[in-house]
Design a protein around this nucleic acid. Sequence first.
DNA 1: AAGTGGTCTAGACCACTTG
DNA 2: AAGTGGTCTAGACCACTTT
Lengths: 238, 238
Amino acid sequence: MAALYRQIKAQLIADIASGEVPPGGGLPNETELARRFNVSIGTLRRAVDELVAEHILVRQQGRGTFVGKLDRDRFMFQFFKIARRDGHREFPQVRLLSFAKGKATPPEAAMLGLTGAAPVWRIDNLLSLQGRPVIHDRLVLPAALFSGLTRERFAGRAGTIYELYQTEFGVTVVDAQERVRADAATADSARLLGLAEGAPVLRIERTALTFGQQPAEWRVSVVDTREHDYVSRAREGL
Amino acid sequence: MAALYRQIKAQLIADIASGEVPPGGGLPNETELARRFNVSIGTLRRAVDELVAEHILVRQQGRGTFVGKLDRDRFMFQFFKIARRDGHREFPQVRLLSFAKGKATPPEAAMLGLTGAAPVWRIDNLLSLQGRPVIHDRLVLPAALFSGLTRERFAGRAGTIYELYQTEFGVTVVDAQERVRADAATADSARLLGLAEGAPVLRIERTALTFGQQPAEWRVSVVDTREHDYVSRAREGL
DNA sequence: AAGTGGTCTAGACCACTTG
DNA sequence: AAGTGGTCTAGACCACTTT
C-alpha cells in the first residue's frame, strides 16, 4: 500500500503529463489542492516538495506554484554541463546542420527503448560558444513522440530544444543519463570543430528521459575540450 | 533570521564534524533529540531529512539514525563514476605507486584553497578493474588536515580511502566537484595503462569537499576509456 | 488588505527491527 | 513487548507578493 503523498504526487505528475496543467501554468493554491485530494495540507506539501526537488514544479512564495519550464536558465542549470576552463558558462549558439527521418539502427533502438526499426528523426547541430564551434551534436528522436515535427518547426523554435519538446509536443524532459568517454576525432567532427583528425575529443552519450523513465531523446555530443570542460557535481540537488 | 530547522541542522553537522557523534555511530532517537533541542518532532525531522538527502545521515526504520560511513557501497554510489561499457560496476583494486610530501604548487594551492606553498601529501595510485589497470590517480592532500599520515597508515587502511580520512583524521568528504576533459596520454600514463603515447584518455579533476565546502583532496584521474565510461545523471539525489 | 507559500506545533497511529 | 523511524492530521502564525 503506497503512501498517500506518493499517490498525490503520481496524480500531479499525471495532470502535468496529460497537459491539463500547462508548462509555466500555475497550480491551484495548496489549501485548494489539499481539499481537492482530501488530504491534510502537510501531506499535500510533501508531494509537492518532492516534485520541486525534481525541478518539475517551482514554488514562489507569495505568488503560487508553477510547472517548471525548460527555458534557458533551467537548461543551463540542469542539462548543459560544458563550461570554459575558467568557469565561465554561457548558453550555446546552435546551428542546424541536417534534419532527416530514418529507421532506427539497432543501437539507436536499444538506447531509446524502441522495437525493431521504428521511425526516428536525426538532427545534427553545431554548437558555438563565444562564436567558436565547440560541440557537434547528433540528436535521435522517436518519431512516434514527435509527430508533426518538421525542419521548419525545429529551426523556427523560440526557446531551447527541450522547451520545444515540452510546449509543442507535450514531451517534458525530467532527467538524463550521460556516459562520457575520450575518443579520437573523426574526419567529420575534426573538420566541424577545427581539430586535427584523431585529436582527443570528449564523447558524451545522453539519454533524456520523460515521465516514467521513458526515453525521449538520444544525443551524442562530441566536444572539443581544449578550452572547455564537462562539469559535474557529486551532490546535485541541494 | 534563519529558520529553526536550519539551526538544528547546523548543530547536528557541528556535532558530527567535532567527532562527538562518530561515523557509524547512532544518534539519540527523534523524540529525545526534539526534546533536547526544544523543538517539535516535525521540525527535528525536517533537519534530519535534509542531512539524509545529503547522505550525511542514514535512517533505518525500527533501528535508528546513524552517521553515514564512507564505505565501499557509498563510495561506489556517490563518488566512483567509472563503469564498464555494458554497465557493470565494481570496486577497483588499488595499488600504491608513490607517496611523498612536498610544497603545494600554485595550481594545487588554488584548487585546495591553500595560501602560498603550504605542505601537501602527494599520492599516486593505479586502479584496476577485473585485474586490468584502467585509472591512474594522483591525490593531493593538505598536510594540515592529515597530520600524522604515513605511507604505512595509508597503505594499511582497512576500507576505502575516504573511510580512512573519516575515521582516522575526522575529515568527512560530503561532496565533490569534477571537471572532465579529453586529453592525449602522457608517456607515464600510457605506460601504466597499456596505451600508446598520445592516445585519447579521459582526464578528471576532482575537488573533494568536507563540511562548509572546505576542500579536503584534489585528485586527477587519467582513465582509459576503451572499455569504460564516466557515468553521470542529471538528477542525482532522488 | 488579500492571497500565496514557508515554518512550526503537538499530537495520533502505522511499519519495522530487535530482544 | 518495547523501541525505532514513517506517515498523517488540523490547525496556527510568519514572510512575501500583488492589488
